[in-house]
């Protein structure tokens, strides 16, 4: 999910938008394995606060992460609209708990702007670009960076 400079060719870009920590984010549709309802997870001892636990996804053990907490936006309040977005990274998958899923968006890669040069390195690492849609800012998540913290930092 690279930001595009103006002269590079335009590709169609389809993504799923969702809200987390009262901000709107999206992940490219090819990175999403499935979206499922929240079900209780098995907590992991000594896990960082944003790791809720592990869940059984048809025989696979996948970690479930509170996206809002990982982004430093506070924990997600539990409600009926909560869903888990299972995302497939290069080597592993993880589930992200988000507040709610909004829609599928089809745009061109030219609509993705570079992340503005903000102060927070945390945010810059996790947000690969932004999309301006009407009045709303949609933050394109950098999935690899989000998942890297998993096997990397915990080791």
């Amino acid at each position: 999910m690279q930001t595009q400079s103006s002269d590079s060719p335009v590709h169609p870009f389809e993504c799923v938008t969702f809200s987390s920590g009262e901000q709107v984010f999206c992940l490219e549709i090819t990175q999403i394995r499935e979206i499922r309802r929240w079900s209780p997870v098995t907590a992991l001892p000594h896990a960082p606060g944003d790791v809720l636990g592990v869940m059984n996804l048809r025989g696979a053990v996948i970690p479930i992460i509170d996206l809002s907490a990982r982004l430093g936006l506070g924990t997600t309040a539990q409600n009926d609209r909560n869903v888990v977005i299972v995302a497939q990274g290069k080597s592993n998958s993880s589930g992200f708990l988000v507040e709610s899923v909004s829609e599928i968006l089809a745009i061109g890669t030219d609509a993705i702007q570079e992340t503005p040069d903000i102060k927070s390195d945390l945010t810059k690492g996790y947000v690969g670009g932004v999309i301006a849609l009407e009045d709303e800012m949609i933050r394109v998540l950098n999935l690899d960076n989000l998942l890297q913290t998993e096997t990397g930092a915990a080791a």
């Binding site: 098995t42 992991l44 001892p45 000594h46 592990v54 059984n56 998993e150 915990a154």
Partner: peptide, 27 residues
Amino acid sequence: VKSLEASYGPVPGISSATILGDGRIAL
């Protein structure tokens, strides 16, 4: 036995996980 390291990473005091009869994961 299902590995935790591959999907998550090492957990202190826990070697791996398994799936129980009710479909839930037990460490």
